[in-house]
């Protein structure tokens, strides 16, 4: 559906490098898809196009990776369910890793890491949808 001049993996990363976070939506079954791929994993249609999600989500599963303080200290790794119904891995920042708990509402932010765009999350203000 979408015309690509590169594969979708590079296309997605380039958008992220430019500060834009997108996911895919299927033109046939209308379901959202992440990570980006070539065929809708729900209905098999070749009809995936980019859409901008609202960026709000909920922490679904959580771990703190333990790391020596001199190497940067402990950090969070979370699985986050976006309100559009897709799941992805990310890091919740601005909160002590021990305070990132399942059910926490979070909001997406595009940051730079090693000079590439990276999708991170912050605690969201307000209540569950």
């Amino acid at each position: 559906m979408t015309e690509h001049t590169t594969g979708i993996e590079i296309a997605w990363q380039q958008k992220l490098d430019g500060g834009e976070f997108v996911i895919q939506q299927c033109g046939e079954c209308q379901r959202h898809v992440f990570f980006p791929r070539e065929v809708c994993p729900h209905c098999g249609a070749d009809a995936l196009g980019w859409v901008a999600p609202a960026g709000l989500g909920t922490v679904y599963a959580v771990t703190t990776v333990r790391r020596a303080a001199e190497a940067g200290g402990d950090y969070n790794v979370s699985l986050i369910d976006l309100d559009e119904g897709v799941r992805l891995m990310s890091r919740v920042e601005g909160v002590d890793p021990a305070d990132v708990t399942i059910g926490l509402r979070v909001k997406a932010r595009v940051a730079k890491q090693d000079e590439r765009g990276v999708l991170l999350f912050d605690r969201a203000e307000g209540d569950a949808p």
Binding site: E9, Q13, F34, F35, Y60, A61, V62, T63, V65, Y75, V77, S78, L79, L88, M89, S90, R91, I102, G103, Q113, R116, V118
Partner: peptide, 25 residues
């Protein structure tokens, strides 16, 4: 794994830890 590696999960333990956290919850 371009959609996981940027977050430096300690693989494999962190993947199983995520499952365990959800099972506990």
């Amino acid at each position: 794994q371009p959609y996981e590696h940027p977050y430096e999960p300690m693989l494999p333990p962190s993947a199983y830890a995520l499952s365990a956290s959800r099972h506990m919850h």
